[in-house]
Amino acid sequence: MTEPGEVDLRHHGDSEVGDGLADFAVNVRAGTPPDWLAERIRASVTGLAAYPDPRPARKAVARRHGRSAEEVLLTAGAAEAFVLLARVLTPHRAVVVHPQFTEPEAALRAAGHDVERAILGKDFTLDIVRQEVLVPDDADLVVIGNPTNPTSVLHPAAAVAALARPGRTVVVDEAFMDCVPGEPETLATRLPPGIVVIRSLTKTWGLAGLRAGYVLADPHLIGRLAEAQPLWAVSTPALAAVEACSTPEAVAEAEAWAVELTAERDRLAAELSARGLYVVPEARASFLCLCVPDGLGIRALLRQRGYAVRRGDTFPGLGSDWLRIAVRDRASNDRLLDVLGELGI
């Protein structure tokens, strides 16, 4: 266990982009939303005079994961879900497993909770043996990402589920789970007692600006979160997107993209590893995490050449030699590799 250090928990990939830079910093799928989804969102604008009705989208999410509608709360992105949980839960000992997305810890701290950090080792993978050592028995709130941002590691579902025990809430951030073909390690369809799953449409469907996500949990907790949520928090266009992206056809399209992503990500990882870089093994999301000597210096040089990558030192458990690189199409990835080669990498 480590106590909080001075890191900027509010620094995210969007802070890295702009000024015409090629974006390898934000983990949103390029070329999205697809035309059919954009049309559904545009069509929803005709209903803006009415207050949003979340019921159809809520039912669609429930069907998509084999849950009841009472186990679903729609949110303005995953970020709102973290804020709602921080407002509703009253943990005596909250533990965030790092490295991971920093917004859950930031939300807990903003709500006045003390937070401890459990730092995973170099391969950043949770297993059943390790989690018993990593997380103290009296922790009553544990937060973990799966697959984890920024490491791209997919933890075994059994190891994550084993974190649960009476009196403890385990929050699993599955914002990148649809990057994994077949989603074999998701807990969304199983939802063991004490487990809360958070999902997002931002990454796969290119909807960061729309704010669309949801929470899956037991009906009692969903009810408490709903009471803490502002009225009509999810807009009509966002609800239309949630409903559309939860259909079997949309899920199949996301699956096909995940298969293509897997092949290109593995190729890019192999290219980087062949140059002697440490790439976190077994990456399963839409980005790679790698250790580069003088990572901040390399980041600055890449910016000079028109490329934005995500610095790693704002993730607890990483440092200034770490970078996160989004996986793009083959041609874009090759151009980045060429520039890295020019820098001697």
Rank of each mutant, 00 (worst) to 15 (best):
R130G: 11
T204F: 07
A38K: 07
F176N: 07
P219R: 08
A106E: 13
V339L: 01
R211C: 07
I144D: 08
A263R: 15
L239K: 13
R67L: 11
G209C: 10
P104Y: 00
I345E: 00
A217I: 14
P248F: 08
R10G: 15
R10I: 08
R130K: 12
T202Y: 08
E243L: 02
A62F: 11
F101M: 14
A212F: 12
S332R: 14
C179K: 03
L134D: 12
V97I: 15
A139G: 14
D127L: 06
T32D: 04
S286Y: 00
P156C: 04
T186D: 01
L318V: 11
T32G: 08
R224D: 00
S235H: 10
A81F: 13
P237V: 06
H155G: 09
L74H: 03
R303E: 15
T314W: 12
R310M: 15
L337Y: 08
H113K: 13
E105Y: 01
V142K: 01
V171M: 12
G66L: 07
L277V: 00
R328H: 09
A250P: 02
D137Y: 10
A62W: 09
G276E: 00
A161P: 05
L239Q: 09
D334F: 02
R117D: 11
V197A: 14
A270Y: 00
P56C: 06
A308E: 02
V172E: 03
A107C: 08
L268Q: 02
V143G: 09
T90F: 05
A50S: 15
A212N: 02
D218W: 09
G31F: 04
R55P: 03
R168H: 06
D140F: 05
N27L: 04
A269P: 05
D173H: 03
E70Q: 13
A161G: 06
I198C: 06
L340I: 11
A22L: 14
P281K: 13
E260L: 02
